[in-house]
């Protein structure tokens, strides 16, 4: 039964994300899309992949990949996000 409810929730979220993208909300379109995607991923992970009742070790393993991806994005963004405002000296001279 919980599988079916999960599936139903996923379908509702899918409809929601598709519908929301036809409403102009600026940056919040992306926020909504990604937020709903995260919710869907969480549903799949918790119920279909049984992370809900899993041991701490498995939960850590599941989060590690995402955490490391966040490191890649976050630290790269110290460069990509700030290059216009704090350029390297070689670019600042130009």
């Amino acid at each position: 039964m919980s599988y079916f409810l999960t599936w139903l929730a996923l379908m509702v979220l899918l409809a929601l994300t598709t519908a929301s993208s036809y409403i102009p909300m600026g940056i919040f379109n992306t926020v909504a899309n990604m937020g709903i995607s995260c919710a869907k991923a969480l549903l799949i992970a918790l119920f279909f992949m049984h992370l809900r009742g899993a041991s701490a070790l498995l939960r850590i393993a599941a989060v590690t990949g995402l955490l490391w991806l966040a490191l890649l994005f976050g630290l790269s963004w110290t460069d990509l996000g700030t290059r216009p405002s704090a350029p390297a000296p070689i670019d600042a001279r130009r």
Binding site: L75, L80, S85, A86
Partner: peptide
């Protein structure tokens, strides 16, 4: 070891701010 890779790129044209962080 995963947090320091930008030190290979100090003179590559990456932002100064990133250079300081790395």
């Amino acid at each position: 070891g995963f947090l320091v890779w930008g030190h290979h790129m100090f003179v590559s044209g990456q932002s100064m701010y990133a250079g300081m962080v790395f």
